[in-house]
Amino acid sequence: MGTPLSTLGTRRSRVQLSLTPLIDVVFILLVFFMLVSQFADWRQIDLRPQAMLGGGAGDTQTLIVGLYPDQTIRIGDRSTQDLAEAAAIVRAKSTSDGAVVIQPRDGVAIQPVIDLVQALDAAEVSNVRVDSQTGEPMP
């Protein structure tokens, strides 16, 4: 026997939409975005290798800056461990149309290279490149 129409109408009026699946899905979305979202302040630096230069490191217009594992920076016959002083020396020695090539020696991490590039950028030294071949800097 079927359900009497009068009873069916009463049941329909009492049916409520369950919100539990919706809450489940929304919570899963919330947890997912909480886990994969990153709010870090990412920045980008244009770090050009020496290979992008037209000339070699031995060009007369190229100023070689040696970077050593003990944070020593050698520019020609001068050495320092202070970034600002090194940037000032490079600015004084570099020419407007010449290039500045940073040569990190073996064992130098990338962070000191970035720090030196930024110090040179702050000192308004342009055309800075980084040598992709580590080794003994040229005198």
Partner: peptide, 9 residues
């Protein structure tokens, strides 16, 4: 930050 500069370059 501790990666070798040579690897990045």
């Amino acid at each position: 930050s501790r990666a070798p500069a040579s690897a990045v370059m």
